[in-house]
């Protein structure tokens, strides 16, 4: 377990630095985790984060990578709907790193 403080409020994380309570997430939390991850957030990063959070709020799980790619393609066109583009934004992997910044739990299982 770990934690960090922003503006006097303490945020709990799990052992791997993922936010424990996704409802506590706000943009400042996203920015803070991104900085720890060494990711410089741009508008393009936020497009992915917002999609992930919306998907999660509907399905209670992050989307499969293929769905993420397809939906990005539908929303923003083929130049953003591909794996290379997403790995470029999130070098440690869109599933793990983008979820972490978006405040979603780490996907586990045989994945």
């Amino acid at each position: 377990m770990g934690s960090f403080d922003i503006d006097g409020k303490t945020y709990e994380t799990d052992d791997d630095g993922y936010l424990v309570d996704l409802n506590e997430w706000n943009e400042d939390v996203g920015k803070y985790i991104a900085e720890l991850e060494g990711v410089d957030l741009t508008e393009a990063h936020w497009e992915v984060i917002n999609f992930l959070r919306n998907y999660y709020s509907e399905y209670n799980i992050a989307p499969a990578i293929k769905i993420l790619i397809k939906e990005m393609k539908k929303m923003f066109g083929p130049e953003k709907g591909n794996s290379a583009y997403l790995y470029d934004l999130y070098p440690a992997g869109p599933a793990l790193q983008a979820c972490k910044i978006a405040g979603l739990p780490k996907p586990t299982g045989c994945v």
Binding site: G2, S3, F4, D5, I6, D7, G8, T10, D28, V29, K31, Y32, E35
Partner: peptide, 10 residues
């Protein structure tokens, strides 16, 4: 930016 206020809990 959040980094000014944010510190990892000691």
């Amino acid at each position: 930016m959040a980094d000014k206020e944010a510190t990892a809990t000691e």
